[in-house]
Nucleic acid binder design. Structure first.
Length: 482
RNA sequence: GGGCCGUUAGCUCAGCAGGUAGAGCACCGGCCUUUUAAGCCGGGAGUCGCAGGUUCGAAUCCUGCACGGCUCACCA
């Protein structure tokens, strides 16, 4: 720590004085009868009745032998009136209170002459002394770096931030409720994995000392969840953290929350309906409205989303049918479109770059982009009637990709070939290519039912529904450089 | 990783023709027994992100670094 702040020194001296007065500045427990909100909402029945409230001191207007303060609890703020005539000796404690302290107050509910519902303190107890002054009361805490690094201060100073994270939790609970209601079993799979797969991304590597072997933080849980389907569970889901060793930006945090759900006897069409129903559920039960705005774009949650094929979308927005083109021709066209193809190993990767630049900015209303090229999707089943495509879709809205889903590949021999192809990409220098997973192939040998799978970026869903432009404002403790 | 911008009191910010640091809130003292960003009077508080350089003199100009933001690239 650097030099002690004057105000901190003064507060520590107050702690000393309180102890000399026989007051414990850090007592253990307090019983309250009402939240601030309850007192205010039930004023008519509580007027002149005694209540006990508790909270953090957030404003203070003392004038000599009387004064007003506001305390803040989990549900809001309420004003407290302190008067020397009522408190007598106890008024000495009031004079030693600082902004940020936690106090408990017993008193009768009344209305001041300006009409504010207030508790007239008959007793006041210090519940915890704050040694450091809080952020500024009027402007709040603006400094973005401070807000992310010291989220407790951000939450303290900016009530709208608390509201936002309460809403995040409700959305997450809503997602969980929806899948449980649909009959999915919530499971937990390893975060620490001896090999990684299920997505294209570089992993975080860690070392397991007892085994003297490198392990990986999961980039996805897909393989484990499918092994559960092989084991006989018909509907499973997991919501949890994934870790991808990549850059930070408005839409990416290396540690993020993901939902994956797998359903036996289903294909990607069933999973599209599941996504439609999930959003209907969220809009009805959480948002309580059937549209929302993200960065000025009004998004309407409909029962049925538009579906457009991957190549169809590319053709619609570039005028070029990429389907018949080989890698070289695709590359040429990409460059004509001004798309950077540097380091793109396959036609699929080049197409992805074109898609991101030319198509994605037009995907505003909820839409499923379906039927992707096979080479960028090693775990999905081939499209019925077209070996160059797989049955895969990505849900988009507000120009943002929010998930990924397939008719899951369940033929172990084909799975092996796909892994071998990925292996060859790896050898060509594509570090995101999926490594081969023999255990998974072996598991699939025992028989895996036809299965639909879905992955959903939960943080991105939160961003969209709450109109939060940066993932750092959708995650309580976003990753920052140390 | 590239480009642009930012970093001054606990917080929000001003100060930048280069002359040695300011305001509001917060804090301390005084007055004040119904206030609402309470008020009035007085006071304390800063290694101006860090390190170099130019200069008689740097918060201010230059260079490098750190951290952050936006953006491009990378990345589902």
């Amino acid at each position: 720590m650097e030099k002690e702040l004057d105000q901190v020194r003064i507060r520590k001296e107050k702690v000393q004085r309180l102890r000399e007065m026989g007051i414990d500045p850090f007592p253990y427990i307090f019983f309250r009868t009402h939240f601030s909100e309850e007192v205010k909402e039930n004023f008519d029945s509580l007027e002149e009745k005694e209540v006990v409230v508790a909270g953090r001191l957030v404003s203070r207007r003392l004038h000599g032998k009387a004064g007003f303060v506001h305390i803040e609890d989990d549900r809001g703020r309420i004003q407290i009136y302190f008067k020397y005539d009522t408190l007598q000796d106890r008024y000495a404690l009031v004079k030693l209170l600082d902004l940020g302290d936690f106090i408990g107050v017993k008193g009768k509910v009344f209305r001041t002459k300006t009409g504010e519902v207030t508790v007239w303190a008959e007793n006041v107890e210090l519940l915890s002394k704050a040694l450091h002054p809080p952020p500024e009361k009027y402007h709040g805490l603006k400094d973005i770096e401070l807000r992310y690094r010291n989220r407790h201060l951000d939450l303290m100073a900016n009530p709208e931030v608390r509201d936002r994270f309460r809403m995040r939790t409700r959305i997450i609970q809503g997602i969980r409720e929806f899948f449980v209601k649909e009959g999915f079993l919530e499971v937990e799979t390893p975060v620490l994995q001896p090999r990684y797969g299920g997505a294209f991304a570089r992993p975080f590597i860690t070392h397991y000392n007892a085994l003297d072997r490198d392990y990986f933080l999961r980039i996805a849980n897909e393989i484990y969840l499918k092994r559960l389907i092989i084991g006989g569970f018909e509907k499973v889901f997991e919501m949890g953290k994934m870790f991808r060793n990549e850059g930070l930006d408005r839409f990416h945090n290396p540690e993020f929350t993901n939902l994956e759900a797998y359903q036996a006897y289903a294909d990607y069409n069933v999973m599209m309906e599941l996504v439609e129903n999930l959003f209907l559920y969220l809009s009805k039960d959480v948002l309580k409205k059937d549209s929302f705005t993200f960065q000025g774009m009004e998004i309407v949650i409909k029962e049925k989303w538009e579906r457009i094929t991957y190549f169809g979308a590319l053709e619609k927005y570039t005028g070029i049918d990429f389907y018949p083109l080989d890698k070289e021709e695709t590359k040429r066209k990409a460059e004509e479109l001004g798309v950077d193809t540097e380091g793109k190993v396959t036609k699929g990767k080049i197409l992805d770059a074109i898609f991101d630049k030319c198509v994605q900015p037009d995907l505003v209303q909820p839409v499923f982009v379906i039927d992707y090229p096979v080479d960028i999707t090693p775990l999905a089943k081939k499209k019925r009637g077209d070996d160059n495509l797989v049955e895969r879709f990505e849900p988009f809205m507000a120009m943002t990709e929010i998930g990924n889903a397939y008719s899951e590949l369940n033929n172990p021999e084909e799975q092996k070939e796909r892994f071998l192809f990925q292996q060859s990409l790896r050898e060509k220098g594509d570090m995101e290519a999926t490594p081969i997973d023999e255990d998974f192939i072996q598991a699939m040998m025992y028989g895996m039912p036809p299965t639909g799978g879905l992955g959903l970026g939960v943080d991105r869903v939160v961003m969209l529904l709450l109109d939060v432009p940066s993932i750092r404002d959708a995650i309580l403790f976003p990753q920052l450089r140390e």
